[in-house]
């Protein structure tokens, strides 16, 4: 494994990242701050550990920093910078987001907030079953200002046609499949970071809020909802951790699917426990909920991944033994 950063340094970086992400700055400034803290060096020294550390912090802080761009570019073997963005697959999918049509390139995907200020964009194109990686002028990706459910505007949909001759092939050292796996693992850690935040909010509320003369945490229906959330989080977290020692793309798909499911379950239960206050714009809960909805769709979701995984098993005809003692 190339992942070699000692635990102490990692913990120190994690604290630094969290502090930078918690600052109320624009995503581009956060990205720059993270690069200043050594994000690029971390990612090259320890791609999976480093990404997991940063993405856990993204989940906890709900920052809209564009680190997914870096994880994907790095996995492909492309140098990263705060001015380089990546075009991600369309929601719930993991296929390359562009395909040729005549002289044009049809792009149907997602971009992060980084695309706004970026100079270069990385675009994966699928043609005749092969994926090629290209670079384009990020100016070609400008579209309507992001709307959507997420007030933090971390990602927006991108649907454009660009001239095919605008693409410059980029040499890569990693496959698209490995980039998808890296993205899924990182996003699983983000979803679980967010789920842990939501669970902690709901737990504190349950303990503090009294009705019928006692804390609502004393009601079994409430307790079981929170317990169920923790169980799903821990199950998914164990798989997301296992991905750090095993780059198997199937394991990454499982981790992302489980994390999305755990986050969705936790969001539903936390919302119910928070009740009225959790439905307000004033309580912070909705920011995490909405980000979770968006992040779940990236590179395959909890609703699309089980079928993808199942088709994989059916075409293999056997079930691989992924987790070894």
């Amino acid at each position: 494994m190339s992942d070699t950063v000692d635990a102490e340094d990692l913990a120190l970086l994690a604290t630094g990242f969290e502090a930078a992400m918690a600052e109320e700055t624009r995503p581009a400034e956060t990205d720059q701050a993270l690069f200043d803290l050594g994000w690029a060096e971390l990612l090259s020294a320890a791609p999976s550990q480093g990404a997991a550390t940063a993405f856990r912090a993204l989940g906890t802080t709900n920052s809209a920093a564009g680190l997914l761009d870096d994880v994907v570019a790095n996995a492909l073997g492309i140098g990263i910078s705060p001015q380089t963005c990546v075009v991600f697959p369309a929601p719930h999918q993991a296929e390359a987001p562009a395909h040729p049509q005549g002289d044009a390139m049809v792009v149907d995907g997602l971009v992060s907030a980084r695309a706004e200020g970026a100079t270069t964009a990385v675009l994966a194109v699928e043609a005749n079953g092969d994926v090629s990686i290209n670079s384009i002028d990020a100016g070609l990706l400008q579209g309507p200002v992001a709307g959507g459910v997420d007030p933090g505007r971390a990602y927006r949909r991108l649907s454009v046609e660009i001239p095919a001759d605008a693409l410059v092939p980029v040499p890569t050292s990693g496959s698209w499949e490995s980039a998808v796996a890296a993205a899924r693992t990182a996003l699983a850690h983000q979803l679980l970071g967010g789920a842990r935040w939501m669970l902690a909010e709901a737990r504190q509320h349950a303990v503090d809020r009294a009705q019928f003369g006692r804390p609502v945490a004393s009601f079994q229906a409430i307790r079981h909802k929170l317990a169920e959330s923790l169980v799903q989080i821990e199950g998914a977290a164990s798989v997301a951790e296992a991905c750090l020692d095993d780059p198997d793309p199937l394991l990454a798909a499982l981790a992302k699917s489980l994390a999305g499911q755990a986050a969705a379950t936790t969001a539903t239960h936390a919302q119910q426990v928070l009740a009225g206050i959790g439905f307000t714009a004033e309580h912070q809960f909705h920011y995490w909920l909405k980000r979770m909805l968006v992040v779940d769709t990236l590179f395959g979701s909890a609703s699309s991944l089980p079928a993808e995984i199942g088709h994989h098993l059916l075409s293999r005809g056997t079930v691989p033994r992924l987790i070894q003692l």
Partner: peptide, 15 residues
Amino acid sequence: AARALGHAFQSLVAF
């Protein structure tokens, strides 16, 4: 079938 298998497999892997 694929979806049900995927769900069963992911629960098993989590365990």
